[in-house]
Simulated assay, not measured.
Amino acid sequence: MNVPRPFGSDDGDETVFDDYDEFRPDHEPEPGPFLAGHDVLEGREHAALHRLARARFEDNGVYDMTFGYNLARLNLDRRHEDAGFRYAREADDPTVLRAEFTPTTEFCPQSDTLTVAAFRAWNDDPSLHEFDLVSVRVAPMHQRDVAINGRLEQLEEQFLETGEVAVEDAAAGAPGGTDEGVDDAPDVGGTPF
């Protein structure tokens, strides 16, 4: 059964996507506070890193279920020019990459899952890139940014202590099987984005 996706997929019209080798600042989200004061990547450096993101996400199944494509492709989708990832090398430690995810809407219910999946994809095998740590956060425009980023900070702390990406209890949705400190998302009704 072939069910059409309302917002497109990899099988859709390629004219709505930029190329992975391009960096178009007007088609990228603005760097937010998580990247402020750090070396924000642009041009060829951003494009090269984003191609690596595509590979890491493909290897780890980081897909946006609404759009039906590898999450890295969101940066290239001209229909959502203010959404996707921006990257910066940490000012005090260039072996740390900061990745800030801006979702398509402030109430995107996938933002928690997508940022955790991105963190795990980047850090599951650091030998595949030049960074000792890829620190991931959701942009503050998201209604649950504090809770989501708190969860990402916990995962990062566990990774730095153990050198391994924490396995989570899928039923509870947080490290170690607890939802402590994570607010429930309000019911906004309508179609999830």
Rank of each mutant, 00 (worst) to 15 (best):
N2Q: 12
V3I: 13
P4C: 01
G8Q: 08
S9C: 09
G12V: 04
T15D: 13
V16D: 05
E30F: 15
F34Q: 13
L35A: 04
A36V: 03
G37N: 06
H38K: 06
D39Q: 14
D39C: 06
V40W: 05
A47G: 03
A48R: 11
A48D: 10
A48E: 09
H50Y: 00
L52C: 01
A55V: 09
R56A: 10
G61R: 06
G61L: 04
D64I: 09
M65Q: 13
F67Y: 15
L71C: 12
L74A: 04
D77M: 06
D77V: 04
A83M: 06
G84E: 05
E90M: 06
D92V: 02
D93Q: 00
P94G: 11
T95Q: 08
A99T: 05
T105K: 11
F107G: 13
C108W: 02
P109T: 03
D112L: 11
D112I: 01
T113P: 00
T115F: 02
A118L: 00
A121H: 01
W122P: 08
N123P: 07
D124M: 04
D124I: 06
P126F: 00
S127F: 01
E130T: 09
F131Y: 14
D132R: 04
S135T: 03
R137K: 12
V138E: 10
V138T: 14
H142F: 09
D145E: 13
A147C: 05
A147K: 02
N149I: 07
G150C: 01
R151C: 07
E153I: 11
L155W: 09
L155A: 09
E156I: 00
Q158H: 12
F159S: 13
E161P: 13
T162K: 05
T162V: 05
T162I: 01
V165I: 06
A170Y: 13
A172P: 10
A174Y: 14
G176V: 07
T178I: 07
T178H: 12
E180W: 08
G181T: 05
V182D: 15
D183M: 12
D184I: 04
A185S: 11
D187P: 07
P192G: 10
